[in-house]
Every structure is written in structure tokens, then in C-alpha cells.
Amino acid sequence: MILIDEPLMYAFVAFWIIWVAVRRKEPGRWLIRFCEGPLMTFAAFMDWNVMRMAGFFVWLSRNPAAALRIKGKEMMLKVEKPSVTPERAAEYERELEETRRRQPIREPMVRLNIGTAMLLVLLFIALYLMAMFIRTWLAP
């Protein structure tokens, strides 16, 4: 059965082939230029923001307590800044800096290479599954 959009689709394919055969270049150069320019800039902007979100999660996971305290103070500063004196606002900012300085962002951690890390993750999964399997097996 022929669909409503099929004749239009075939017409476009025929148009594309004839255009290329006659003019020796693809139709719709303006669209391609638009895609290469403004649209790719927009794509990079979206990507940057998503990576920032992922970066925030990574930052949060390194020391959640400190991260939440810092974020809380940042929010408080933003909310109260317009309604307090400049001296008080400066004091808030100093407090925030002090919190950032006193509380290490990164918990002490051990660095592993990819292979070892992978092996450890898989080993833990395997151990967990084996433990659960044995538990079920031994259950009356």
C-alpha cells in the first residue's frame, strides 16, 4: 500500500538526483551552512551544560557533607545579599571562603588504573552474586 508521504519522498529523491546531475553540487547548501555554524555552537553550549551537571555530581560525590554545606552557604548568600548591608554581605562571602578553605573538597583517595579498577568492580559483583547464590542454595 502506498502511503501519503511516499510520492513526496520519491519526488524528493528524484529532485536530489537530478539537481546533483545537472549542477554537480548538492542542493540545500544554505541549510548545511546553518547546521555547521549556529547549530553546532548551540550543540556545544548544550554539551557544556550537561557536562557541568555531571561535573557537579562528581564534585558532590567526593565529599557530600562539605559540598552540601558549601552549596547551602552559597544559596544563603545569593538570597540574603540584596537585603543586607555591604559589610554583612562581605562577611558572608568571607564565611563562605572560610568554609571552602577549611573543608577539603576531595576525600583522600587511592588511584587505580583502568584494568585494576575494572577487575575490582567485576570481582565485587561476582562475589556478591556468589554469596547470594550460596545463601539460596543452603536455604532449607
Binding site: D5, M9, F12, V13, W16, P27
Partner: peptide
């Protein structure tokens, strides 16, 4: 109709 536009764009970058 949107599917038609999508298929046309497919043609524009595959052909």
C-alpha cells in the same frame, strides 16, 4: 509529515 521531513533530511546526508 514530520517523518517525511526526517526522511528527506536522511537523504540529504546519506546520498
Amino acid at each position: 509529515y514530520i517523518l517525511l521531513i526526517v526522511a528527506i533530511l536522511d537523504v540529504m546526508y546519506f546520498f
